[in-house]
Amino acid sequence: MTIEILLFDGFDDLDAFGPFEVLSEAGLSTRFVTIQPLERVTSAHGARIVPDGILGDPDLVLVPGGGWNDRSGAGAHAEARDGRITTALAERHARGRRIGSVCTGAMLLAEAGILRGRPAITHHTAIEDLRSFGVEVREGERVVDDGDVITAAGVTSGIDLALYLIERELGSEAAKAGAREIEWDVIRAAA
């Protein structure tokens, strides 16, 4: 399984780094990419990241959140208005590729039209926004797997999503080992 975490200026640090560390540690091919060539991307908290390249054709594109609620010039809201990421996500999904999100990254999936009529979750502060896209919001869930789309709730739930993916790809012992490595007490099943 190949995974590309799609970064943009203003992404939430833990939304991207949490899953990256857990997935990479398990041996799954995981890399940071951008929608267009960039020398660096700056997170919501100021970390400067040198991406591995531009979005390719991985088995899973994982989209972090950040910057949805504050409607600033950087983050998920700005990227939704820009449209390049949402267009790319819609195209990949239409070609049968799996798409995932952490936190308000789900809003980019919703803007791309991928979540309409489907179960999903996002950060608790954006649930009503997600619902306005015709999404069947699964409040209280940390990870919602709907086959070709997988969403995780707020920030730390990206780690739950990563452990869930490891369990699906490599088995429960690998997921338990990953949870032990990061001292994560609970592996939570997806809805």
Rank of each mutant, 00 (worst) to 15 (best):
I5W: 04
A191N: 10
R98V: 14
G75C: 03
V41S: 08
D82F: 06
P19S: 10
T86I: 12
A106I: 13
D57H: 14
G96Y: 03
R40S: 15
I150A: 00
T34H: 10
I166C: 13
M107V: 06
S172D: 13
D9M: 06
V41W: 06
V50Q: 12
L130N: 08
A175Q: 02
V186K: 11
S29C: 01
R92C: 07
L6E: 08
A78R: 09
G96V: 03
F32L: 02
A106F: 00
R118I: 08
Y164K: 03
L14M: 09
V41T: 13
H124S: 14
K176E: 14
E21Q: 15
D57I: 07
D146T: 02
V144Y: 08
G46E: 07
G134R: 06
L14G: 00
S172M: 14
I85H: 12
G117C: 03
T2S: 15
L7H: 04
E111C: 05
E183N: 01
T86P: 05
E21P: 00
T30P: 06
S72T: 13
E167S: 14
G117Q: 02
A120Y: 04
G147Y: 00
R180S: 13
A78F: 05
G46Q: 10
R168Y: 09
D9W: 02
I166D: 11
M107A: 01
E136A: 13
F8C: 01
S132Y: 01
E136R: 15
G10K: 03
A74S: 15
I5F: 08
L23C: 07
P19N: 11
I54H: 05
G18Q: 01
G18K: 05
I121G: 01
R188L: 15
R118F: 08
R31S: 15
V144E: 13
V186A: 10
M107C: 01
P119Y: 03
Y164F: 15
A80N: 07
P58L: 14
A94K: 15
V61H: 09
G171I: 05
F8R: 00
R116S: 13
H77V: 07
I159P: 07
L60N: 13
C103L: 02
F133G: 04
I99N: 11
E181D: 05
I35V: 12
M1Y: 12
V137I: 05
T86C: 11
D185F: 13
T87S: 15
L6H: 06
L108G: 03
A190Y: 07
A90F: 00
S29H: 11
G105H: 01
I49F: 02
G100T: 11
E183C: 08
I159H: 01
L130P: 02
E183A: 09
A153C: 12
R71Y: 11
R40P: 11
G83S: 06
P19D: 06
L7C: 08
G158A: 03
L60G: 12
